[in-house]
Write a protein that binds this DNA or RNA. Structure first.
Lengths: 190, 190
DNA sequence: CGCGTTTCGTGACAACGTCACGATATAGTT
DNA sequence: AACTATATCGTGACGTTGTCACGAAACGCG
């Protein structure tokens, strides 16, 4: 007897997509429930039924981002040269952050004061790091690196993260050449 | 003939201090013009006369933060051991970020969608980096490090930045011991 | 005591997150 | 075919934010 339900998982996905799109185009400032609901051709209460509150929507974008990053990193296959593979991972990481700067901000900074990733959300990041740990392990086995793989991966991720953040903020240099050089130098040093 | 002016540089400083305090205590979410004006015992229009808009106030906090950081770093004097001095700089940097996490977020992330540090604001960061560059140069002269001092400093700052960001987000590990170990390992590797 | 000028803060406006509640659509019943 | 019952929808409201126009207030001088 009721009317047909419109707030389905499909609408939820449409809202997710709209949220990612609005974020990429307008930045965190344009990330409003009204605008996103409008972009998905629905009303704001639908957002609240499907995601709880705005932070819930940000949370989904957060996970969406880590999913995409994991896919990109996994796409850099493994060759016979573990060191080159590890370096390729770093390049892919850098490329992802530069291609999706706003998304990266949601993942690694906290542009929204209401969404604060807690212990549950950290799992999203560690799934990505596991991928890196595996590549580091291969380098250790090949004798190219020494130390604990997890510790090394942490350091490497932190370095990449810091470099990427600096690059986005145009803090790493003005010319493309010097930015590239600093990336290479830092990664090599590590 | 007019009434006495209250919106003086003194009030401006009081607002700056109030802003820093409110930020530290309530985070970016509590950083509202009303609250800050109230904490400085004035009205919101005073904020707009003295700072233009909220972003202007954030901007001041941003500079305040870099000033404080520079003071802390300079406080670690130079001894006869350039390498130890450089390491001390890293420790001080880390300590500052941990002691003022919200302030650090304003300086290095972008928790406020309205304030986006442009070319002018980058000078604040480079004054801090110059201090680091000098220490790196001393290490190079002592033969402990090789390469271009500015490039090395950039890499070092990026690494420290990434580690600090990860530590604040509790991404670097759960126990104090492993966080410390990862800091030391990463810095040593560099 | 009043006047002119400068300065102040109250109150308004638009936009935001959020949700109560009346409007709407549908299947079954008569 | 009309009606009812009910699950579902979106309009409109509330409190809060950044921002600023404009009337109220304070002061030195006549």
């Amino acid at each position: 007897m009721p009317r047909r339900k419109l707030r389905t998982p499909e609408l939820k996905q449409r809202l997710r997509d709209a949220a990612v799109e609005v974020l990429a185009e307008q930045g965190p400032g344009g990330f409003t429930t009204r605008r996103i609901a409008g972009a998905a051709e629905t009303s704001t209460p639908a957002v609240y039924e499907l995601f709880g509150d705005r932070a819930g929507l940000v949370r989904e974008v957060f996970f969406e981002g880590f999913g995409a990053l994991r896919v990109r990193l996994a796409a850099t296959g493994e060759t016979g040269d573990p060191t080159a593979d590890l370096r390729a991972l770093g390049s892919a990481y850098r490329a992802f952050i530069n291609a999706n700067p706003q998304l990266a901000r949601v993942m690694f900074s906290r542009p929204f004061s209401d969404f604060d990733p807690g212990p549950d959300e950290l799992g999203a990041g560690s799934s990505v790091r596991e991928l890196i740990v595996r590549r580091v392990e291969r380098c250790i086995e090949a004798g190219a690196i020494e130390g604990d793989a997890i510790d090394v991966a942490h350091g490497l991720v932190a370095l990449i993260q810091g470099l990427a953040e600096a690059e986005i903020s145009r803090r790493l240099g003005t010319s493309r050449a010097s930015v590239d050089r600093r990336w290479d130098l830092a990664i090599d040093a590590m």
